[in-house]
Structure formats: C-alpha cells, structure tokens
Design a protein around this nucleic acid. Structure first.
Length: 434
RNA sequence: GCCGGGGUGGGGUAGCAUGGUUAUCCUAUGGGACUGUGGAUCCCAUGACUCGGGUUCAAAUCUCGGCCCCGGCCCCA
C-alpha cells in the first residue's frame, strides 16, 4: 500500500463536488468583473523563480533536473509565469489585460493549518494600468467573491497600506535603510512593544524617530478618514502624491459600498522586493487563521523579466485557508454527489433499460443503473447512496403491460406510468441536478 | 531545520495509568433473509494494534529509535 505524500490531498467524489461548487462560484464572480481565465504550465525553468528570490524561497521549490540537463521547478506561485507570458506576448495584447487562474501550486514547506505542499490558489491580475481604479477593481473583486461565497463584513477584514507611502514617510524622518525597517514593521504584530522598540534601536533608529514611526503606524482605522487625516498632516511632495492615489481608491471603494470591510493599516508590508505600491491582506476578523489573501501593486516585475514597463496589480488567494474559514462559518457546501435518476431492474429487462438510458442521457440527464445484479432492495439502497433524486423501477411483470414505476426519492411519492409516456416527455417527471 | 502532541480494521473509537484468554463498540463494505415497495430490521462474512530494536515467561500497553499525521516556530512569493 502507498500513502499520500505529505501535505497533499485526495479528493473523493463528494469532496470534489463541494470544491467544484466553491470554485464555480469564484469563477462566476471574477468573470462578472471582466477577468478572463488563463493557464500556464505546472513546470517552469528554475531561473524564473531564482532570478528575484532569496535563498529561503529557493529551498522551498520542488525542483529537479530534467533529461536535457535543465533545472526545472514546479510552480510555487503563478505571477512569474503570467508575467513571462505577458512579456513575451506584449506586442499582440491589448491593454489593460485582466486575467485570472486557479492553478495548482507546490511549495516544499512544513504543512500547518491552512498551509499545504500542494494547493490551489486563485490569482487575479490587471496589467497595463497604473490608475488607482485598477487597484479598486482588484480589491472590489476580492471582497465581492467572498460575499458571493457567503461572508460578510463581520467575518473578514481587508487591510490596506502602501509601500511607497511608508518609504516616503521614513525618508522624511531621516531613515534611509527602509528595507530593514520594513522587515521589522512587518513583524510588529507578532512581537511585543518592547521587542519592537529594541529591534528598531538595534538599527540605530533614534527614540524620537521611533515615536514618529509608532504614531504613523497607529494611524490605522477607517480607510478614507485615515487617508484624509494623513493628507492634512503630511504635505511633503512625495508622500502627498501617494496619499492622493490612496484617497481615490478609498473613495471609490466607499462608493461601491465596501467601506465596512476595509481598514487602513500602515503596518501591512507583505513579503519584500515584490510590491511597489498599494498592498493589502485579507484576514478573518478573529484572526483565527493565517492571511486569506495577499496582494498589491508590482509595477516593475515585467522589466525585471526583460520586458518593457508594464504596471500590474493583483492578488492570490489559497484554497486551504478559504476552506477552513468557510467550514468555521458553516458555509462550506454539502459534500454530496447527486444524479438525476437511478434505474432499478427486476428480471430480464436489459433491452428496455438500454433504450431508456440512451434516450435520457441524450436529453442531458445524469442516469445510472444496476450492473451488480443486486436484488431490488439493495438496488434501492445503492440508489440512495448515489444521491439519486428519482428511482425508476423496471420490472418484467409490469413491463408486460407497458408500465414502469417512478419514485421520487426525496419525498417517497411514487406512481405507475407507462414506459412510453415517460420516455417521450421525461421533463414532466424529472428535474436536472445543478 | 527547530519545538510540542499524536499514530488501534476503510472512517470513528474502547482498552494503555496497574503488561496476562479469542482486542471493544459504532459505521462503512460484501453476502443473505424478508414471494417486486425495499432507504428499515435481522443473520453471516471481510477487516486493525505505524515500523524496527530493547526489557519481560509474556508488550497495543513499559522503553529507545525511525517513519507518518496534527499543531507551532522560521518563512510565507
């Protein structure tokens, strides 16, 4: 016997049915926002990931050498692949490009709650526009798809910040090594006040500077209000430009009715080296789980890949945390398979059954029948386990008079009708699943 | 890589402190009975102590190690 590889999952039909419902809800919402689905290979050249990543990230790749001596990696994220496609096809594409995908990704990490080695991740991106409305579209889409799955503002919180704003702010108070400071700011929620301060002191940040940083980070709250407060207290040129574009995003999100979901939180940083502007995260309000989404602006990745300048904004949402959150709220779909009709047989009625099967299947019904030579009782048991909505009993005796029995397995009602009548207008008797 | 908690039929479990008959119960699965109305009930069957070493007359039980699972740290693209 073999076992599943660590951090991977098997999906049995009932589990698959639930997952399909969730994914199709997501796809529907995203497509309502005008995104088109794409896909890319699961394997890519190792360099696609090593070019911009640190050692730790590379250690977490599923990588191997192929027979041609190339180093190959399973994709750990989608963005490099999408940007690769974009850069190589930029000439033929008309911008803005709005693409989405739900790829399977692989990361060689230690599995934990909400983190696996193989998982799905919804990715949506807008390329070609640096307008704040692109940011708004992406954030709105994130919120809307969660709403369509059954969440509301009491469940989730979108926290937004902007890397440029932080950078400008730090420059204004005389801090130049903002890289290191960002790293510490990113950890702020996890460490104590005291440790936070000591880490900053370790970088030779002065006490007054730390006070300023603290004040700035504490400016979190209602998105639009926080931004307006900041704009009156920060008139410096660099920062006020950033604030203006954030103000437009905030205003637009309010106009779309998403105000209650959003918090402005300057301590949001996200992983380094990737994002260039607005960044956001989505969490459950109780902070029971790890981040559900992460995303933001990454305007220079295309150039880094040897293309022209293509501004970009997008996010990724893993399926593992989503499932945990949906289960917690009891909105994970019922794990159940269903068919429209099961045909139970008594005696030798093969010819008639074949005709019924073919006719109904051609009309688009999901139909199954006994191929185990079970007795009637066991056939009915099996039909129920299959989740059949209706049961058709075709028996030798009744068939001599042209009759069959149709039972609704949900209500238990049954009726004897003629085979001819049933086959000629099945829609009178059956409804389709889904 | 580090730290903690765990592994008993396909799934869920009892037993483990205090070693000692045929390892408990539920469920699932296969078969059968109930004259072709049955989702029920009853009967029968299949099926497990994570692996290896140690202690012992005797190990599911005590002990050491490996493997695996769950959670946490690191990291999180």
């Amino acid at each position: 016997m073999f076992e599943r590889l660590r951090g991977t999952r098997d999906f049995l039909p009932n589990e698959m049915a639930a997952r399909k419902k969730v994914f199709s809800s997501i796809k529907k919402t995203v497509e309502e926002f005008g995104f088109f689905e794409t896909d890319t290979p699961a394997i890519e050249l190792f360099e696609l990931y090593s070019i911009k990543s640190g050692e730790e990230i590379i250690e977490e790749l599923y990588a191997f050498e192929d027979k041609g001596g190339r180093m190959i990696s399973l994709r750990p994220e989608l963005t490099p692949s999408v940007v690769r496609v974009l850069v190589s096809r930029a000439k033929e594409l008309s911008f803005p490009v709005k693409w989405y995908s739900i790829p399977r990704l692989w990361r060689y990490e230690r599995p934990q709650s909400g983190r696996l080695r193989e998982f799905y991740q919804l990715n949506i991106d807008i390329f070609g526009s640096d307008d704040p409305r692109a940011d708004t579209e992406v954030i709105s889409c994130a919120i809307k798809l969660l709403c369509d799955l059954g969440f509301d503002e009491s469940d989730i919180e979108v926290r937004i910040s902007d890397r440029r704003m932080l950078q400008e702010f730090l420059l204004n108070i005389g801090i130049e090594k903002y890289h290191d400071v960002l790293k510490i700011i990113d950890k702020r929620e996890k460490v104590s006040q005291k440790d936070f301060k000591e880490m900053l002191l370790g970088l030779k940040i002065s006490e007054p500077q730390i006070k300023e940083i603290d004040a700035f980070l504490n400016s979190k709250g209602n998105f639009l209000e926080s931004i307006e407060n900041l704009s009156s207290s920060h008139k410096e040129e660099g920062i006020s430009q950033v604030i203006e574009s954030l103000r437009r995003i905030a205003q637009d999100l309010n106009d779309r009715g998403f105000e209650k979901f959003i918090t402005f939180d300057p301590s949001i940083v996200r992983g380094l080296d990737y994002y260039t502007g607005m960044v956001f995260e989505v969490h459950d309000r109780k902070r029971e789980f790890r981040a559900l989404f992460g995303g933001g602006r990454y305007d220079n990745l295309a150039e880094l890949f040897g293309g022209e300048h293509i501004p970009a904004v997008g996010f990724g949402m893993g399926d593992a945390v989503l499932e945990l959150m949906m289960r917690r709220k009891n909105i994970w779909p019922e794990e159940k398979v269903e068919i429209d009709l099961f045909i139970a047989t008594i005696g030798n009625v093969e010819k008639e059954v074949s005709k019924i099967l073919t006719s109904l299947r051609n009309s688009g019904y999901k139909v199954d029948f006994d191929i185990m030579n079970r007795n009637l009782s066991n056939q009915i048991k099996f039909a129920n386990k299959l989740g059949a909505k209706s049961l058709l009993i075709v028996g030798e005796r009744d068939l001599k008079e042209g009759n069959i029995t149709l039972r609704d397995l949900k209500t238990g009602n049954e009726a004897k009708i003629t085979l001819e009548e049933f086959v000629s207008s099945p829609s009178k008797y059956l409804t389709k699943v889904l």
